[in-house]
Design a protein around this nucleic acid. Structure first.
Length: 271
DNA sequence: AAAAGCCCCTGGATGC
DNA sequence: TGCATCCAGGGGCTTT
């Protein structure tokens, strides 16, 4: 479900409010992707210093340790002074004196992991291999082009892999490639310097725009205070199979790459 | 080293 | 209405 814009929109919606909060209660329900790594009760008494993001991970800095949160395909957070009674798909809760943080995740591909610090082996295993932040200052066209040249796989899958640039999931990979006019099946290594620069700009544009409108809400996504995104009204190709391209009118096509659907315009994305 | 598949899990949409 | 099948915003792990 959530890609970078949704995760960042979620972070922005509660980071300032929870910061400084003292943990009064902590609860873990059904198992998520991995075990927490400590008895959940030991979180009580600690403090939440702040919330950062790395790729699609949320990093809750505690006075003692670090809590890594991942929303997987279907996860979302809620944060409020009071929340309705827990439902079947609520799996984690952190009650602080600033409010209650709750993770809802029907498919349970998400995760909550505690580590003593970001340099701990468990944290490093999850974070170290990640590519650069697409909206950060070190995402640069030249280095991006150089990294693409080393990869022969299809550009769509290279984007999705997250090891060159993070945060681009299935929606925004298709959208960025459309904006850049690049066929999703093209080998990354065969993308010219100017086209790589165009793709670089497209990734920033589409993620930046999606974040600005609160992300994409296909089904249930909303940020931690219940606000839905609006980027679904602006998608050019994702989920628009068989509909006319907004630029040229050609019918949008779907194909399957590595178990995931890819959408593109055969005319705007010729090669 | 990179690439390709597999799989975790639940719910909604579609088809018979 | 009931049941089977397919599909879904991710990504770590194993195998080629």
């Amino acid at each position: 479900m959530p890609e970078l814009p949704e995760v960042e929109a979620t972070r922005l919606s509660f980071a300032d409010r929870i910061a400084g909060g003292r943990i009064e209660d902590a609860w873990l329900g059904k198992a998520l992707r991995w075990p927490l790594g400590m008895p959940v009760g030991q979180l009580v008494g600690g403090r939440v210093l702040g919330v950062r993001r790395r790729g699609k991970y949320l990093l809750l800095d505690l006075d003692k340790g670090l809590l890594l949160l991942h929303l997987g395909m279907s996860g979302s957070l809620s944060f409020a002074p009071h929340l309705p009674p827990r439902g079947a798909h609520d799996h984690f809760e952190l009650a602080t004196d600033r409010g209650i943080l709750r993770l809802n995740d029907p498919r349970r591909f998400g995760a909550v992991v505690w580590t003593p610090s970001q340099s701990d082996a468990r944290a490093r295993k999850l974070l170290d291999g990640l590519g650069v932040e697409p909206l950060g200052a070190d995402f640069l066209p030249e280095a991006f082009h150089a990294a693409l040249r080393a990869r022969k796989a299809a550009i769509k899958q290279v984007l999705l892999s997250g090891d060159i640039v993070v945060g681009v999931g299935n929606i925004y990979a298709s959208e960025a490639l459309f904006l850049a006019g690049i066929r999703p099946t093209l080998s990354a290594a065969r993308i010219s310097r100017p086209r790589a620069a165009r793709l670089h700009a497209a990734i920033r544009e589409v993620l930046g725009r999606a974040l600005a409108v609160g992300g994409t809400t296909l089904r249930n996504y909303s940020n931690a205070v219940g606000e839905r995104g609006n980027f679904q009204f602006e998608v050019a190709v994702y989920g628009r199979s068989g509909k006319p391209c907004r630029v040229c009118g050609t019918l949008i096509k779907t194909l399957r790459q590595g178990q995931r659907a890819t959408f593109y315009c055969p005319r705007c994305q010729k090669t």
